[in-house]
Amino acid sequence: MEVQGYIFAFLIGGAICVVGQLLMDLTPLTPAHILVLFVVGGAILSGLGLYQPLVNIAGAGATIPLPGFGHSLVTGTIEDINKMGFVGIFSGALRATASGVMAAVVFGFLAAVIFNPKG
Protein backbone atom coordinates (compact mmCIF):
# COMPACT_ATOMS: atom_id res chain seq x y z
CA MET A 1 0.00 0.00 0.00
CA GLU A 2 2.77 2.37 0.98
CA VAL A 3 4.82 1.67 -2.18
CA GLN A 4 1.73 2.17 -4.29
CA GLY A 5 1.23 5.59 -2.66
CA TYR A 6 4.73 6.64 -3.66
CA ILE A 7 4.23 5.41 -7.21
CA PHE A 8 1.05 7.45 -7.62
CA ALA A 9 2.69 10.52 -6.05
CA PHE A 10 5.53 10.18 -8.57
CA LEU A 11 3.32 9.62 -11.61
CA ILE A 12 0.70 12.30 -10.94
CA GLY A 13 3.20 14.86 -9.60
CA GLY A 14 5.46 14.27 -12.59
CA ALA A 15 2.54 14.53 -15.01
CA ILE A 16 1.45 17.90 -13.57
CA CYS A 17 5.00 19.18 -14.08
CA VAL A 18 5.00 17.93 -17.69
CA VAL A 19 1.89 20.04 -18.36
CA GLY A 20 3.82 23.05 -17.07
CA GLN A 21 6.84 22.18 -19.20
CA LEU A 22 4.75 21.87 -22.37
CA LEU A 23 3.15 25.26 -21.65
CA MET A 24 6.61 26.79 -21.25
CA ASP A 25 8.01 25.20 -24.41
CA LEU A 26 5.02 25.68 -26.71
CA THR A 27 3.63 29.06 -25.59
CA PRO A 28 5.31 32.38 -24.74
CA LEU A 29 4.36 31.97 -21.06
CA THR A 30 7.17 32.64 -18.57
CA PRO A 31 7.71 30.67 -15.32
CA ALA A 32 5.94 33.48 -13.42
CA HIS A 33 2.87 33.05 -15.63
CA ILE A 34 2.96 29.28 -15.13
CA LEU A 35 2.99 29.63 -11.33
CA VAL A 36 0.00 32.00 -11.39
CA LEU A 37 -1.87 29.86 -13.90
CA PHE A 38 -1.38 26.66 -11.88
CA VAL A 39 -2.52 28.14 -8.59
CA VAL A 40 -5.61 29.65 -10.22
CA GLY A 41 -6.23 26.42 -12.17
CA GLY A 42 -5.94 24.32 -9.01
CA ALA A 43 -8.35 26.64 -7.19
CA ILE A 44 -10.95 26.40 -9.96
CA LEU A 45 -10.67 22.60 -10.24
CA SER A 46 -11.02 22.44 -6.49
CA GLY A 47 -14.11 24.65 -6.60
CA LEU A 48 -15.64 22.31 -9.16
CA GLY A 49 -14.88 19.38 -6.85
CA LEU A 50 -12.41 17.83 -9.30
CA TYR A 51 -9.16 18.22 -7.39
CA GLN A 52 -9.97 16.35 -4.16
CA PRO A 53 -10.27 13.00 -6.00
CA LEU A 54 -6.76 13.56 -7.41
CA VAL A 55 -5.45 14.25 -3.89
CA ASN A 56 -7.11 11.05 -2.67
CA ILE A 57 -5.22 9.02 -5.27
CA ALA A 58 -1.87 10.80 -5.48
CA GLY A 59 -1.39 12.32 -2.01
CA ALA A 60 1.68 14.54 -2.11
CA GLY A 61 1.74 14.09 -5.89
CA ALA A 62 -1.26 16.41 -5.99
CA THR A 63 -0.63 18.61 -2.93
CA ILE A 64 3.07 19.45 -3.51
CA PRO A 65 2.64 20.91 -7.04
CA LEU A 66 1.20 24.44 -7.06
CA PRO A 67 -2.35 23.48 -8.07
CA GLY A 68 -2.38 21.86 -4.61
CA PHE A 69 -1.75 25.32 -3.16
CA GLY A 70 -4.81 26.65 -5.02
CA HIS A 71 -6.76 23.61 -3.79
CA SER A 72 -5.82 24.42 -0.16
CA LEU A 73 -6.88 28.05 -0.60
CA VAL A 74 -10.34 26.96 -1.75
CA THR A 75 -10.91 24.06 0.65
CA GLY A 76 -9.90 26.33 3.54
CA THR A 77 -12.34 29.00 2.40
CA ILE A 78 -15.20 26.54 2.07
CA GLU A 79 -14.48 24.98 5.49
CA ASP A 80 -14.59 28.41 7.16
CA ILE A 81 -17.78 29.36 5.32
CA ASN A 82 -19.38 26.18 6.60
CA LYS A 83 -18.22 27.01 10.11
CA MET A 84 -18.75 30.78 10.28
CA GLY A 85 -20.83 31.81 7.30
CA PHE A 86 -19.98 34.83 5.17
CA VAL A 87 -16.94 36.00 7.19
CA GLY A 88 -15.31 32.67 6.44
CA ILE A 89 -14.72 33.89 2.88
CA PHE A 90 -12.02 36.16 4.27
CA SER A 91 -10.35 33.82 6.73
CA GLY A 92 -10.23 30.32 5.27
CA ALA A 93 -7.76 30.71 2.42
CA LEU A 94 -4.89 32.07 4.47
CA ARG A 95 -5.61 29.89 7.49
CA ALA A 96 -5.30 26.75 5.37
CA THR A 97 -2.07 27.83 3.68
CA ALA A 98 -0.51 29.70 6.60
CA SER A 99 2.33 27.22 7.19
CA GLY A 100 3.59 27.27 3.60
CA VAL A 101 3.41 31.05 3.21
CA MET A 102 4.91 31.71 6.63
CA ALA A 103 7.74 29.25 5.99
CA ALA A 104 8.48 30.72 2.55
CA VAL A 105 8.72 34.25 3.92
CA VAL A 106 10.75 33.37 7.03
CA PHE A 107 13.15 30.94 5.33
CA GLY A 108 13.38 33.31 2.38
CA PHE A 109 14.43 36.11 4.69
CA LEU A 110 16.91 33.93 6.57
CA ALA A 111 18.45 32.55 3.38
CA ALA A 112 18.84 36.09 2.05
CA VAL A 113 20.57 37.16 5.25
CA ILE A 114 22.90 34.17 5.40
CA PHE A 115 23.74 33.48 1.74
CA ASN A 116 24.92 35.58 -1.18
CA PRO A 117 23.89 34.83 -4.77
CA LYS A 118 26.55 33.06 -6.81
CA GLY A 119 25.34 34.24 -10.22
Binding site: M24, T30, P31, P117, K118, G119
Partner: peptide, 18 residues
Protein backbone atom coordinates in the same frame (compact mmCIF):
# COMPACT_ATOMS: atom_id res chain seq x y z
CA UNK B 1 28.44 41.74 -16.88
CA UNK B 2 26.35 38.60 -17.10
CA UNK B 3 24.89 38.89 -13.60
CA UNK B 4 24.10 42.63 -13.66
CA UNK B 5 22.35 42.18 -17.01
CA UNK B 6 20.40 39.11 -15.83
CA UNK B 7 19.01 40.84 -12.77
CA UNK B 8 18.10 44.00 -14.71
CA UNK B 9 16.59 42.39 -17.79
CA UNK B 10 15.49 38.90 -16.74
CA UNK B 11 15.20 36.89 -13.53
CA UNK B 12 17.27 36.88 -10.32
CA UNK B 13 20.32 34.70 -10.93
CA UNK B 14 19.38 32.05 -8.35
CA UNK B 15 15.88 31.63 -9.80
CA UNK B 16 15.50 28.12 -11.20
CA UNK B 17 14.39 29.05 -14.72
CA UNK B 18 15.21 27.31 -17.95
Amino acid sequence: HHDTAERQYRFPTEQGVQ
